[in-house]
């Protein structure tokens, strides 16, 4: 039987009394890849922030690998949830080189150097290791961001429109790499996207966030 990695029960999230998410229930198993689509402002990004602990839910529970990380009484901080997050904006640390960016997360977690080399090679960024983020193209930057997150072995990966701004050729190159890395490491992934093709290609299950509610399509 597959292991349940993420379980969200009766989750509600309000900002200043405005409902953002309403009665969200979701269960994901190890290695599963789901996509969430929905109109702008429907709360997709908010859902990822609540799962990661960057925002606190109003009510409801979140369990990661059976451990309660968020409830009315409990709140485990983001850095202790073992969750990776990649967003579309530039989030590489501008004062660090590509290599130092990738090493950043593993200072906190025990990972060997040969894994860094392997990861950089998989994302075809080994030649960029001494460059700074401002010297990278959009696609290169996004690949570094993905590598930086995946090298920390997150149990859950949250992708917030991570391929926006990348051209189709680059996307078709990246997708198989990502799929193989995620499958290899059995990473459970939630991707927020507007791109139907991307969703069809990568996801096992698709969801829609409409009127603050999550529905499987």
């Amino acid at each position: 039987m597959s292991k349940e990695v993420l379980k969200i029960s009766n989750l509600n999230y309000d900002i200043e009394k405005k409902i953002i998410l309403k009665n969200i229930n979701l269960s994901l198993i190890e290695g599963e890849f789901i996509s969430i689509m929905g109109p702008s402002g429907s709360g997709k990004t908010s859902l990822l922030r609540v799962i990661s602990g960057l925002s606190k839910q109003t009510t409801g529970e979140i369990l990661i690998e059976g451990k309660l990380v968020a409830s009315d009484q409990t709140f485990i901080e983001t850095e202790n949830r073992n969750i990776g997050l990649v967003v579309q904006d530039k989030v590489l640390f501008p004062h660090l080189t590509v290599l130092d960016n990738i090493k950043f997360g593993i200072n906190n977690r025990d990972i060997r150097n040969n894994k860094i080399t392997a990861m950089m090679s998989k994302f075809k960024i080994e030649d960029l290791q001494d460059q700074y983020p401002h010297e990278l193209s959009g696609g290169e930057g996004q690949r570094v961001a993905l590598a930086r997150t995946l090298i920390t072995n997150p149990k859950i990966l949250l992708l917030d429109e991570p391929f926006n701004g990348l051209d189709d050729k680059l996307k078709s190159e990246i997708y198989p790499d990502i799929q193989s890395i995620l499958e290899e490491n059995k990473v459970t992934t939630i991707m927020v996207s507007h791109n139907n093709e991307e969703v069809q290609e990568l996801s096992h299950r698709n969801f829609k966030l409409l009127n603050h509610k999550l529905e499987e399509t």
């Binding site: 922030r49 990661s52 602990g53 960057l54 901080e77 983001t78 850095e79 969750i83 990776g84 997050l85 967003v87 904006d89 530039k90 989030v91 590489l92 640390f93 501008p94 950043f104 997360g105 200072n107 906190n108 977690r109 961001a145 930086r148 997150t149 920390t152 997150p154 949250l158």
Partner: peptide
Amino acid sequence: QFSLNIDDAARTLGSN
């Protein structure tokens, strides 16, 4: 001058 996303990235990468 630097986005809040940078903070989020650091937090999800394990920084307190």
